[in-house]
Amino acid sequence: DAEFRHDSGYEVHHQKLVFFAEDVGSNKGAIIGLMVGGVVIA
């Protein structure tokens, strides 16, 4: 149960990062950079 909640939280966090990247611009380099930055921060 705890693992499921953790996975759901991660999924929401990931979707927010992707949405933010798409909102800023559909530049693949920027999106990839944001994703990598999110992984480093996390």
Rank of each mutant, 00 (worst) to 15 (best):
D1V: 05
D1H: 10
D1G: 12
A2L: 05
A2R: 12
A2H: 10
A2Y: 13
A2D: 07
A2I: 05
A2Q: 12
A2T: 12
E3S: 12
E3V: 05
E3K: 14
E3L: 03
E3C: 13
E3H: 11
E3F: 14
F4Q: 10
F4E: 07
F4Y: 07
F4I: 11
F4N: 10
F4A: 08
F4H: 11
F4K: 06
R5N: 09
R5G: 10
R5P: 05
R5D: 04
R5Y: 05
H6V: 05
H6M: 10
H6G: 11
H6K: 11
H6N: 11
H6Y: 11
D7Q: 14
D7W: 12
D7T: 15
D7M: 14
D7R: 12
S8K: 12
S8N: 08
S8C: 03
S8W: 11
S8L: 04
S8V: 05
S8F: 13
G9Q: 13
G9R: 13
G9L: 09
Y10T: 13
Y10M: 08
Y10N: 12
Y10L: 06
E11N: 14
E11G: 13
E11W: 03
V12G: 11
V12S: 12
V12Y: 10
V12K: 12
V12H: 14
V12P: 10
H13A: 08
H13M: 12
H13E: 06
H13I: 15
H13Q: 09
H13G: 08
H14S: 08
H14V: 14
H14I: 15
H14T: 07
Q15R: 05
Q15L: 08
Q15M: 11
Q15E: 10
Q15S: 07
K16F: 01
K16L: 02
K16R: 09
K16C: 05
K16T: 14
L17P: 11
L17R: 14
L17E: 07
L17Y: 14
L17C: 11
L17W: 10
L17K: 14
L17G: 13
L17F: 14
V18T: 13
V18Y: 15
V18L: 05
V18R: 11
V18G: 05
F19W: 04
F19I: 15
F20G: 13
F20D: 05
F20C: 05
F20W: 02
F20L: 10
F20E: 06
F20R: 12
A21P: 08
A21E: 09
A21T: 08
A21V: 12
E22Y: 04
E22K: 12
E22L: 03
E22C: 14
E22M: 05
E22A: 15
E22Q: 15
D23V: 00
D23I: 00
D23G: 14
D23F: 01
D23T: 09
V24R: 12
V24W: 03
V24I: 15
V24G: 15
V24S: 12
V24E: 10
G25V: 08
G25T: 06
G25M: 10
G25C: 11
G25F: 14
G25W: 03
G25Q: 10
G25R: 11
G25A: 09
S26R: 03
S26I: 10
S26N: 14
S26L: 10
S26H: 08
S26T: 10
N27F: 15
N27V: 13
N27W: 06
N27A: 03
N27E: 00
N27I: 12
K28G: 06
K28H: 10
K28N: 11
K28M: 03
K28L: 02
K28W: 03
K28P: 03
K28E: 06
K28Y: 08
G29K: 00
G29R: 06
G29H: 03
G29P: 03
G29W: 01
G29S: 02
G29A: 05
G29F: 07
G29E: 07
A30E: 03
A30T: 13
A30P: 04
A30M: 07
A30S: 00
I31Y: 03
I31E: 00
I31H: 06
I31R: 04
I31C: 07
I31L: 03
I32M: 03
I32S: 00
I32R: 00
I32N: 00
I32D: 02
I32H: 03
I32F: 05
I32K: 02
I32V: 04
G33I: 04
G33K: 08
G33R: 01
G33F: 04
G33H: 10
G33Y: 03
G33N: 13
L34W: 01
L34H: 01
L34K: 02
L34M: 09
L34G: 00
L34D: 00
L34Q: 06
L34V: 15
M35S: 01
M35G: 00
M35E: 00
M35F: 00
V36M: 11
V36H: 03
V36L: 13
V36K: 04
V36G: 01
V36F: 14
G37E: 00
G37P: 01
G37H: 00
G37F: 01
G38L: 03
G38M: 04
G38H: 02
G38P: 05
G38N: 09
G38K: 01
G38E: 00
G38F: 02
G38W: 02
G38Y: 02
G38I: 02
G38D: 04
V39A: 01
V39N: 05
V39K: 02
V39W: 04
V40T: 02
V40P: 01
V40R: 00
I41H: 07
I41N: 07
I41W: 05
I41G: 02
I41A: 03
A42C: 15
A42V: 11
A42F: 08
A42Q: 06
A42D: 03
A42L: 15
A42I: 09
A42E: 00
A42P: 04
